[in-house]
Design a protein around this nucleic acid. Structure first.
Lengths: 188, 188
DNA sequence: ACCAGCGATTGCAGTCTCTGAAATCACCGT
DNA sequence: ACGGTGATTTCAGAGACTGCAATCGCTGGT
């Protein structure tokens, strides 16, 4: 390790969340985030591609994990079941960060630029899953369509989990959402 | 009308497409687009919210049209049928612009920023349709899920239409995609 | 102990996107 | 003729982001 205090990336993320909450996303300069984290603006850009990206830590890792889990699922498992299992596998991590997720969501919802980035990430997740399904031998258009509904169900589950006053586990909301997906699909 | 030549917006769009094709999106300055259109940079920003938006003319109008068409569809029509009908209604407009659509697609695919904007527009379309379905009395989660698959099917149809060497009409690709959607949904 | 390599951080200069405010211009109806 | 109107322009500036070179001090080899 170097001589600098470790965890620069994490410090930048925390500083960003604080400032975005205090003053809003637009009124916060990148230089301010860096200063609060004890770093410089230039260093911020060494860690994040742009100002928005600081609010999506580990998102690419998450997408890659889901993709790999879907690819590695048992061959006899139905596509939607494999995807549900993949989502469920990592759901504890989120349960331990409910409050942070809510803070983050409030910031995201308040600004169009950030929603745009989130939508892009969501779309990337869908494409990743579609890729994984193709690797499993599911061919288009089923791969694309299945990935799309799965992501929609995941979004739904995440929204309910975040708003749930009873603090139910994410995996339970996922189970419910996928269950409702099956019911809804029967009407199509 | 004013003393200025009409169609400033269209001229800016054409100039942008030309320059993006010649030099690429990143290497083209907004000021250059404006100059080629016989205008100034500031005027560009009077017409478009940002540099990307020049590649999405009328997209918001399209989304609004689809939403209204879905709301206005016969009450006895199934949600997916209403959406398919809405897409089909405006499909001629696209058929008359195949080549422009392909040029545009090549630019979009070449740059991440632009794909991000496109994904945001697609997501907005989905949310608009979900809203329309709720107006029709379809309640969540069915509204959200149905809108999501419909948009996915639309994307699929558009992609095939654009790549179709036989120049088939968009409405036919839409019909096929929604047909396949029904078949796929049965396996869920 | 000395030194070269290395990774993280920094300073700086510069480009480009995007915005706000005020001015200009010619057409319009009165 | 005259003010209203709407599109365009000018100007000045903030702020996001990048390229490049320099710095710092830890690490391992000698």
């Amino acid at each position: 390790m170097g001589r600098w205090p470790a965890g620069a990336q994490e410090r930048l993320q925390e500083a960003a969340i604080e400032l975005f909450t205090e003053r809003g996303y637009e009124r916060t300069r990148v230089a301010e985030i860096a200063t609060r984290a004890g770093l410089t603006e230039r260093t911020f850009y060494n860690h994040f591609a742009d100002k928005r990206e600081v609010l999506f830590p580990g998102q690419d890792r998450f997408i890659a994990d889901i993709r790999e889990a879907v690819v590695a699922a048992p061959a006899e498992q139905a596509p939607l079941d494999a995807i549900l299992a993949a989502f469920t596998a990592g759901s504890d991590w989120f349960d331990q960060r409910r409050e942070a997720a809510q803070r983050r969501r409030r910031i995201l919802d308040a600004h169009g630029d950030l929603r745009e980035r989130e939508r892009a990430k969501t779309a990337a997740l869908g494409e990743g899953i579609a890729d994984a399904l193709r690797t499993r031998g599911v061919c288009d258009p089923a791969a694309t369509l299945t990935a799309a509904v799965a992501v929609a169900a995941h979004q739904l589950a995440a929204a309910r989990w975040s708003a749930d006053p009873r603090h139910g586990a994410l995996k339970d909301h996922l189970r419910d959402s996928f269950e409702e997906l099956h019911r809804t699909a029967r009407t199509w």
